[in-house]
Design a protein around this nucleic acid. Structure first.
Lengths: 139, 139
DNA sequence: AAAATAATGATATTAATTTTCAATTTCCTT
DNA sequence: AAGGAAATTGAAAATTAATATCATTATTTT
């Protein structure tokens, strides 16, 4: 199974406070609770976190999300709309329905390898990648 | 060779005013003048445009860039930093050096086809895509 | 040329994110 | 365990990118 956020924090020397632990938990549970295509923005995270501890400020959510991102725990997405959206760092890619905004996640080994090969060709070691496909549903 | 922005505007029914023509020219010349990895943000475009006609307001640059984007003439990128950055619409992808911020553009037919295939697999027709590779230079 | 429509410049507004700062909590050092 | 340094937090202010407003100017249409 995957490491928990807590484990990743330990490994990266990120200190876990009560607030951060709650935020981590909310993120960890987001897909389980809200479905596979859940990519909450900071406001949404703040709402969910507030239900657990209403004392936590939105500034802390912003700070924590940034901290986790820098530690490689979360991935930040911009997609189309203004707000940044977050999810656990994972190697999957996104297929976005441009009509409905629905997000389908997929992993494709062939693409992964091709990407490494391309970076290599230019003399780079691949450390991160982002692939977004925008499509319209066929009937 | 590639169509000029003016031609694309005609084809898309986008009216070209003096201001828009100047902005188009600045964008067209950006890579020639500033190198292949030039991806100016609105501020930078505004600076360059101002040197040609200092009367043009930044609001017009914002409006024009949005107009061109909607007409499929420009592509907007978010990369890492906050500001959106623009370039002529083209099918290439980006390899970004996470140390230096250097941007290398590449096209890869194999990846293009794989992307279509994946969208297809999920029942989608691919209309747009974005691939960003983040890497570190090998020695 | 007059009326209608669209585009522009200057400025105000909005929305997301970051920063500030005083108060609290955690971490060391003894 | 106590005291002081360092880090974290909440609340609010500040910043920033982008959009909207509105009076003026330019372009079409008739």
């Amino acid at each position: 199974m995957l490491e928990t956020i807590e484990e990743k924090c330990q490994k990266n020397g990120v200190k876990l406070t009560d607030q951060r632990r709650i935020i981590a938990r909310v993120i960890s549970e987001s897909k389980k609770t809200y479905g596979e295509s859940d990519h909450p923005d900071v406001d949404e995270l703040y709402n969910r976190v507030s239900q657990i501890d209403s004392k936590i400020s939105i500034a802390t959510v912003y700070r924590t999300v940034k901290l986790f991102e820098e530690a490689g725990i979360l991935t930040k997405h911009d997609f189309k709309s203004g707000k940044a959206r977050y999810e656990l760092n994972d190697d999957h890619n996104h297929l976005i329905d441009i009509k409905t905004g629905e997000i389908i996640e997929f992993v494709d080994q062939e693409i992964e390898e091709l990407q490494k090969k391309i970076a290599d060709k230019y003399g780079y070691k691949l450390v991160d990648h982002k692939l977004e496909l925008y499509g319209i549903k066929k009937k």
